[in-house]
Amino acid sequence: MLKTQGLGYWYQDKAQPLFQDINLEFDVGQSYAILGHSGTGKTTFLSLIAGLDKPKAGDILLDDRSLNQIGLTNYRRHEVSIVFQAYNLFTYMSPLNNLLTAMAITGTEHAGDKAFALKTLNDLGIGADLATRNVQHLSGGQQQRVAIARTMAGDAQLVVADEPTGNLDEDNTQAVIEQFQRIAHDRQKCVIIVTHEPDVAAQCDHQYRLENKQFTKLS
């Protein structure tokens, strides 16, 4: 589904890349974890495959089409869904409106379907009473579940998550990881999680470590 071909990235000095010549493949129905220490470039890698930035070298292909061909805005709207460590919800909205807004922007087949949005939230433990409150009145775990629900409500085949459990306690972490696994296996999406927590990575189907400018497959 998603391929990187000779991917490379650097900030100022081309001679000191974060990573270079990366060739990876990601498929639907699978979950992937990318491990690495801080500053190794794993979040930058995620921003490239999420279409938030452009690679300095190489290319990224979605179903054999370059992201440049698809267009980054178009790619972000229809092909990829992103979950952030800081949840990044619309703080002036309720969970329900967060979902409805995202569904409207991305133009999913369920756009405007309030019942579908409520059901998606309910599946993640956000009941009707919480669904209409302002998101700022929810706990961190609940907010992250809303963020995941936003991903699940969309039609995008690729789900990328940047340290999705970074702000969560153990229980919530486990619940969130289980949700990602369901998204991958039940909904047949490709889930790529960037994390520095080995326990989280261990629960994914595949693990990669970014070290010394290269990706190493762990399992």
């Binding site: 938030l52 805005t73 972000r76 709207r77 992103i82 990044n88 995202a102 922007i105 991305t106």
Partner: peptide
């Protein structure tokens, strides 16, 4: 800015 970033990440024009 954060809200704008989220909108852009969702692919909003």
């Amino acid at each position: 800015r954060f809200e704008i970033g989220v909108l852009l990440s969702l692919g909003e024009a």
